[in-house]
Amino acid sequence: MIPAYYKAPRTLLAILPLCFLALFFLVPVGYLFILSFVEGNAFGGAHWTFTTANYTGMLGDRFYIVIAVRTISISLIACVLNVILAFPVALFAARLQSVWKSVFLTIATVPLMVSNIVRAFGWVVILGRRGILNSVLQFFAPQMVLRQHLFSIQAICFGLLTITLPFTIMFLTNAVSGIDRKNIEAAESLGATRWGVFYHIILPLTKSALASGLMVVFFLTLSAYVTVTLLGGPRYKTLVGFIYDYSATLRWPQAAALSFVLLGIGLAFAGIVQLLVSERKK
């Protein structure tokens, strides 16, 4: 038996990080949740009276619905583009020999270590009024009127793909590499075409990785405040933009409520994706 004096410090090992995370993760998020149900005052404080107005006010307002739809659409577009791009890349990478594959994965994940601000700024450099795209355009068509390419949905999508693609590529490459090559050859020998192999073998065997990739993409794009602000400008605000504005203008309960709406959207998406994945498994 392990003596008691030895067991106690062991439990302490668990208690220490547990307390820290409870105090600085669970409690603040819980506090935010409570805050979303109280009436705010103009000074960043709150009258501590219960209300659901922070939520119901949004539901009744067409303005918020438009923003929510825009937010969700942008995230969904990012998801679709991610799948379209990352799957071929993963199929390509999975066939590389081991040395080249690790070189590939290293290069593919380098962007993850670069701050989002730098990656968004990269698109400002390309798409800005004096950016590279305009320089190139001017070189080929000098009389053309220069347009601002920033502050558009396309710019937002580019920026979001820069942030999310490394994740999906990493997830899918690992998943596709994990498929036994013999499974694919077996399917081929049984008469499956390339598309048949993809649809019947590769897709089902990678769908859980695909699902987690999509959830990461969705959450990341949902809360990509910096990217959307820099590349979308004031015209294409999404929900996070309003959360930030409310917090800056001291409308804390509204900011809190909007945060949970955002979380709710993300969880709903995650739920739908999980449902799709597990249903097909049966």
């Binding site: 791009l85 290069i107 593919a108 380098v110 962007p111 670069v114 730098v118 990656r119 700024f121 990269g122 698109w123 450099v125 390309i126 590279i132 580019f158 793909l161 820069t162 693609l165 490394p166 590529i169």
Partner: peptide, 8 residues
Amino acid sequence: LTLVPIFL
């Protein structure tokens, strides 16, 4: 999409 912005 992933590397060029950083590179630039």
